[in-house]
Amino acid sequence: MKGVVFTEFFSFVEEQHSPEFLQDVINCSEIASKGVYTATGTYPVCEMAALLGSLAEKTGTDVSRLLLVFGEHLFGRFADGFPAMFRDADNAFDFLASVEDKIHVEVRQLYPDAELPRFEVIEHTPSRFVMVYTSSRHLGDFCEGLIRGCLAHFGEAATVGRVVKEVDPNSVIEFSIERAAA
């Protein structure tokens, strides 16, 4: 998993709680890296799972909820950090439609070894957007958080539905986004 997810996760915990709390989460996670991450590095996804587990334990919030909230948070950070990626998208559906062919292409240019999920657009109308998420990391909640962060970024109200198509070996989840009537 890219280091930027870890560093943003740390920022998220620090903002929500405190640096001391974060250090406590790290200490409790017993991860090999001891929380030493850089945004450009690549680290085992199991360390993220351990960190999330510790955070869930300490906050009493379940991991799914944490991933969803962290996803929303991370999208906002991306929007601040990479404004060029949003230059050609006027709305959330257009942006989501460009993830596979544009955003991921940009990411691969910087990080050729990046293991990215696959997004397949099934339907794209002004009112409805259907996409299928496929990943070996089983981060459907995180993905939903990112989708919700996207909607929030563009200030759009919509309902997000999800249907799990497959669980093993990959997570295959169909997300249906219905734009709320104006």
Binding site: P19, E20, L22, Q23, D24, I26, N27, K34, G35, V36, Y37, T38, A39, T40, G41
Partner: peptide, 17 residues
């Protein structure tokens, strides 16, 4: 001890970077 740990982690992160 916590601040020392944070400082060490940040230093290590910088070295890692």
């Amino acid at each position: 001890e916590i601040y020392k740990a944070i400082a060490e982690r940040e230093k290590a992160s910088r070295l890692e970077a």
